Amino acid sequence: MATMTLRINEEDSKLIKKYIQLHDLTISEFARQSMLEKIEDEYDLQVLRQAMAEDDGVRISHEELMKEFGL
Rank of each mutant, 00 (worst) to 15 (best):
A51G: 04
E63A: 10
I27K: 03
I20H: 03
M4I: 10
S34P: 00
E42T: 10
L25K: 13
K14M: 09
S28H: 03
I16C: 01
D12S: 11
E42R: 14
A2H: 08
I39W: 01
E54C: 00
E40L: 04
M66S: 05
E10R: 06
T26M: 05
M4L: 09
I8Q: 02
R32M: 00
A2P: 11
D44R: 14
S13P: 00
S61T: 15
S61C: 07
K17M: 14
S28K: 07
D24A: 14
S61G: 14
D44Y: 07
E64Y: 01
E64L: 05
Q46S: 15
M52E: 13
S13Y: 15
A31W: 01
Q50V: 04
A2W: 03
D24V: 03
K14V: 07
K17T: 10
R32Q: 04
L71H: 02
E11W: 00
S34L: 09
H62S: 08
Q21E: 15
V58L: 08
F69L: 15
E29G: 06
G70N: 09
K38W: 12
E11S: 10
D24N: 15
I39E: 11
N9Q: 07
M66D: 06
I39M: 04
M66E: 13
L65A: 07
Y19K: 14
M52V: 04
H23W: 01
H62L: 11
D56Y: 03
A2F: 06
T3C: 02
S34V: 01
L45I: 01
Q46F: 14
R59N: 06
L22G: 06
L6F: 15
E42L: 14
H62Y: 11
